[in-house]
């Protein structure tokens, strides 16, 4: 095991190059995460609103999730090349599932009384979605995002492990093969900090977007109206 001081010293020596690699991994992570939000959220809405689509698509989503991403990552690299795109796609593939499942759960969690009420007022499905269902689902959506953002870091790194010449995953693989374990641990430390920072960022946005949820959680009582 390398000594902590040794890790810090060597990481510091490599700081500029590590910064470049961190940027690559961050970029791949955010692109994959963004893509999973862009695809996962509308899909969750469709799953909740269309029973036909739910029966047709949900099993496929589950099967896709059941396949280990480490196993399909090499195939993705073959198809998409060793560049950044393949890493983005791997990150997307792991982040996508929690977003779909949690958002769909949130959209289905609307109290049936509120749906009856909306129907009795003859409000359109769109209005009910905007004013009732979507805000109700927001806390669920954010808990999906929190899981997804840490997973997309893992996804990007897994992609880099399998084949790349940049990114923190590449640093870990090449450093270990040259017995530079200090540097490998340094890169791992940066990855951990990166994942925590992204998690904290999502939590911050959550607090800004749905303050009622954070407060009712803090009060340890169930959110009002549930």
């Amino acid at each position: 095991m390398p000594a902590p001081l040794g890790i810090i010293r060597e990481t510091w020596e490599w700081r500029w190059r590590l910064l470049g690699h961190t940027w690559v991994t961050l970029y791949e992570t955010l692109a994959g995460f963004g893509l999973s939000i862009a695809v996962g959220t509308p899909l969750a809405v469709m799953l909740v609103y269309s029973p036909v689509l739910r029966d047709a698509v949900y099993p496929i989503v589950v099967v896709a999730q059941a396949i280990p991403k480490v196993a399909i990552a090499p195939v993705l690299l073959l198809l998409l090349g060793a560049g950044e795109v393949s890493k983005v796609v791997v990150a997307f593939s792991v982040a996508f599932f929690p977003i779909v499942v949690d958002t769909a759960t949130g959209l289905a969690a609307t109290p049936p009384e509120l749906l009856d009420l909306s129907r009795s007022y003859r409000a359109s499905a769109f209005k009910t979605f905007v004013k009732v269902r979507f805000p109700t689902a927001l806390p669920f959506f954010f808990s999906g995002l929190k899981v997804a953002v840490t997973l997309s870091v893992i996804g990007a790194v897994v992609g880099e492990f399998i084949g790349s010449d940049k990114g923190l995953g590449y640093v870990i693989v090449s450093a270990t093969s040259y017995w530079k374990s200090n540097l490998a641990f340094g890169a791992m430390g940066i990855l951990a900090i990166l994942a925590m920072a992204l998690f904290g960022l999502v939590e911050l946005v959550e607090r800004l977007v749905c303050p009622w949820y954070a407060v009712s959680e803090r009060d340890a009582g169930a959110p009002a109206g549930r």
Partner: peptide
């Protein structure tokens, strides 16, 4: 019509 249910089901936001 107006509806009142067993739970208040207010919108927490």
């Amino acid at each position: 019509v107006g509806f009142v249910f067993q739970n208040a089901v207010l919108l927490p936001w």
